[in-house]
C-alpha cells in the first residue's frame, strides 16, 4: 500500500512542474525501492497513476460539464455525447506507463538483490 501512496503523492506534485512522463521515473524509482514482488510493482505503478489521473480528470470533467471530453470523444472515436470514454481511457494509459515503469524498476532492483522469499 505504501508504494502506491508514495508514487501517487510524488507524481501528483511532480506533474505540476515536469512533463507528463515524469510518472515513469517516479514509478520506476519507488518500485525499485519499495516493491516486494513483480505483481505488486506492476499493480502499485498502475494503481497510483490511474488514481491520480482519474481524480484530477473527474474533477476537471465535472467542473466542465463534460463538454470537452464529449467533443474529443467524438473527434477521436466518432462517438458523440460520451465523455465517459476519455474519462475512463486516459487514466488507464497513464496507469499503463506507471505499471510498466514500476515493473521495470522492480526487475532492475532484482539484478542487485535477488528475491527474498
Amino acid at each position: 500500500m505504501a508504494p502506491t501512496l508514495i508514487i501517487a503523492l510524488l507524481s501528483a506534485l511532480a506533474q505540476l512542474i515536469f512533463p507528463w512522463w515524469i510518472i515513469a521515473p517516479i514509478a520506476f524509482g519507488v518500485c525499485f525501492w519499495q516493491s516486494t514482488t513483480a505483481g505488486n510493482a506492476f499493480l502499485q505503478g498502475t494503481a497510483s497513476v490511474t488514481l491520480v489521473w482519474t481524480a484530477y480528470i473527474v474533477f476537471l470533467n465535472i467542473q466542465n460539464g463534460g463538454v470537452l471530453a464529449s467533443r474529443l470523444g467524438e473527434l477521436l472515436f466518432k462517438v458523440p455525447n460520451s465523455p465517459a470514454i476519455l474519462v475512463t481511457l486516459a487514466p488507464l494509459i497513464g496507469g499503463l506507463v506507471g505499471g510498466l515503469s514500476g515493473l521495470a524498476g522492480f526487475y532492475v532492483r532484482q539484478l542487485w538483490q535477488p528475491v527474498r522469499r
Binding site: W20, W53, I57, L60, Q63, V67, L72, L86, G94
Partner: peptide
C-alpha cells in the same frame, strides 16, 4: 502525442473550463 494530450496536468483536460 497521446501522453501529453491525455494527461490531466498538460493535456486537453486543462482546456476544460468551468461550465
Amino acid at each position: 502525442a497521446f501522453g501529453p494530450f491525455l494527461s490531466p496536468f498538460t493535456g486537453f483536460w486543462q482546456n476544460a473550463e468551468p461550465a
